[in-house]
Amino acid sequence: MTGFAERRGSDAGADWVWEIRAVNGKGLDLRTRLPDGIDGLEQGARAAVSARMARGNATLSLKLSRAAEAGAIRVNAAGLSAALDAVSQVGAEAARRGVELPAPSATDILTLRGVLETGAVAEDTGPLLAALLADLDVLLADFAAMRAAEGRALAVVIDGQIARIAQLADEARTAAEARRPQMEQALRDNLARVLAGAAEADPARVAQELALLAVKADVTEELDRLAAHVAAARRLLAEKGAVGRKFDFLMQEFMREANTLCSKSGNAELTRIGLDLKTVIDQMREQVQNVE
């Protein structure tokens, strides 16, 4: 099911914008665009989304900005000691050779490699993580509310399509009953032609073949199964929780019965009804893709 939500927040020295959007999907496919450097954010965000979504292709993104932290400048004691030893060694060797060197300044020594260290002070991202995940829960609540509103509107559409399928199934039953005299007459005509063309034909065998033709043309089972599928669809529509996969399977069963009805119709009116059924079922199948 499609959906979108956005939320802005600030806490723990940071500003952020959460955003989630989703489109239809057979399963749950979650893609994240999250900043690095916050331990546990990816795992926490995925767990939160998975707890509220069972189906759909979703993208969760976070834009985060934090106040730039000045890098701390520190004197590396070991590096300073090594630098002073080196300066002393150079001075002693120069004096031994009679070379006069100017005394190095503190600035000169600080420029030597390894004397100074720069880097950000280690940061505890725990408070920021807690604030982000708390705000994510609010975002997901808004997201769920939007999807629920869409779901209620979708339920009305699907309920109407189920009702139309039930109506067409009733019309098919009426048309099947109306064609019974035509079918019986056709069977009698076939029987007469067979008996006239094959005097030595086994009457029992002929009767068996005609009975088989009558069974193949009977659509009672298909109409009964359509009625059962309509009842199942209405139960699914009333259920709480994820029913999209069950609806997917049920739509296959609906279409199977409609196809069989068309193939066995042998009657223009029944064929028309079967084609109308297939059209409505196909439209409903498209809508069902939006159901979680």
Rank of each mutant, 00 (worst) to 15 (best):
31 R>S: 08
33 R>W: 01
43 Q>S: 13
147 R>D: 09
186 A>R: 13
210 L>W: 06
267 N>G: 00
111 T>Y: 05
11 D>F: 08
63 K>L: 10
245 R>F: 11
82 A>D: 02
71 G>C: 05
69 E>C: 11
190 N>V: 12
235 R>T: 15
100 E>L: 12
34 L>P: 00
195 L>D: 09
210 L>Y: 05
32 T>Q: 04
161 Q>R: 15
242 A>F: 13
193 R>L: 15
202 D>S: 13
203 P>T: 01
235 R>Y: 09
290 N>F: 10
180 R>V: 14
111 T>P: 01
101 L>W: 06
214 A>Q: 06
91 G>M: 11
285 R>H: 03
141 A>W: 00
60 L>A: 05
91 G>Q: 13
189 D>S: 14
232 A>F: 08
179 R>Y: 02
26 K>G: 11
3 G>V: 04
41 L>D: 02
56 G>H: 05
84 L>M: 07
85 D>S: 14
263 S>F: 00
271 T>E: 10
33 R>F: 02
276 D>N: 13
228 A>H: 09
250 L>Q: 07
268 A>H: 02
201 A>Y: 01
171 E>K: 07
60 L>S: 01
173 R>S: 01
264 K>E: 01
63 K>Q: 08
134 A>G: 12
149 A>G: 09
239 E>K: 14
124 D>W: 09
221 E>H: 06
123 E>I: 14
9 G>S: 10
127 P>A: 03
14 A>N: 03
35 P>C: 10
238 A>D: 13
136 L>A: 09
143 F>V: 03
10 S>Y: 06
51 A>I: 08
119 G>H: 08
152 R>F: 11
26 K>E: 14
55 R>T: 15
177 E>P: 00
175 A>T: 00
11 D>A: 15
182 Q>M: 14
162 I>R: 15
149 A>W: 07
282 D>C: 09
148 A>K: 10
266 G>C: 00
159 D>S: 15
35 P>G: 07
36 D>E: 10
19 E>I: 06
201 A>T: 03
24 N>H: 11
227 A>Q: 08
165 I>Y: 06
203 P>E: 03
173 R>D: 03
54 A>P: 00
234 R>G: 10
83 A>L: 01
279 T>D: 07
146 M>H: 07
238 A>K: 13
64 L>R: 04
150 E>N: 11
142 D>R: 00
162 I>F: 15
166 A>I: 10
283 Q>Y: 10
123 E>V: 15
224 D>T: 04
222 E>S: 04
194 V>A: 13
213 L>Y: 04
45 A>Y: 05
122 A>V: 14
165 I>F: 07
2 T>N: 14
51 A>T: 06
154 L>C: 15
280 V>F: 11
285 R>Q: 11
168 L>E: 00
68 A>G: 05
277 L>Q: 02
227 A>I: 05
111 T>A: 15
196 A>N: 08
1 M>P: 04
186 A>I: 08
37 G>T: 09
172 A>C: 03
277 L>H: 02
68 A>E: 10
4 F>H: 09
93 E>V: 14
31 R>I: 03
95 A>Y: 06
292 E>K: 04
67 A>Y: 03
42 E>G: 09
216 K>I: 10
9 G>I: 11
138 V>Y: 11
154 L>Q: 14
68 A>K: 07
